[in-house]
């Protein structure tokens, strides 16, 4: 009798424990999934900031807008955002709505080199923007674009394989 009671109590306790662990596990799995999702979303919004400043500088240049005073602001913003790129990829997330290639983490050294190149070129861009020499700015913009492409080449999925299409909706 006694032993049955002990067995029952132990059984119930064990069941409760397992459930508790399960709930905790599910909760932490949920947390991890949310953190992954957040990492992806942040990378994308950061890239949009970078692209936004690139586009603004290009627009001032290609339309010859009388906003050349703004160029330094965009260049500084670009350089500041460029420094954040490596931090945005510290968390390894390859699944989900992302165009990040697993090579970012498999070839971490090479990736680091590429993000460093972007930091270098955007820092130069700030200096050139300060001189208000449009000719030099054109050259440095091209170098900056090359730094973007240098990383996208191997570390971003080509448009054919973009998640935007796999998911069916488009942009």
């Amino acid at each position: 009798m006694h032993s049955i009671r002990i067995a029952l109590t132990t059984g119930i306790a064990a069941a409760l424990l397992v459930t508790a662990i399960g709930v905790a596990g599910a909760a932490s799995a949920q947390d991890a999934a949310k953190a992954d999702e957040g990492a992806i979303k942040y990378r994308q919004s950061l890239m949009e900031s970078v692209g936004g400043d690139m586009a603004s500088i290009s627009n001032i240049m290609k339309y010859g807008l009388p906003l050349t005073g703004n160029l330094v602001v965009h260049a500084e913003s670009l350089a500041a955002h460029a420094k954040l790129v490596s931090t945005a990829f510290e968390r390894k997330v390859t699944a989900g709505q992302t165009d990040a290639e697993p090579a970012i983490w498999a070839k971490a050294d090479e990736f680091k080199e590429k993000t460093k190149a972007l930091e270098t070129e955007t820092a130069k861009l700030v200096e050139v923007a300060k001189t208000s020499d449009p000719a030099a700015l054109g050259v440095q913009m091209k170098a900056t674009g090359k730094a973007c492409g240098g990383c996208h080449d191997n570390f971003r999925k080509p448009k054919e394989e973009s998640f935007k299409r796999k998911g069916g909706g488009g942009e």
Binding site: M61, K62, A135, L137, K142
Partner: peptide, 9 residues
């Protein structure tokens, strides 16, 4: 600014 940029390129 624009044509100079282009000239530089």
């Amino acid at each position: 600014a624009r044509s100079a940029g282009i000239a530089a390129l």
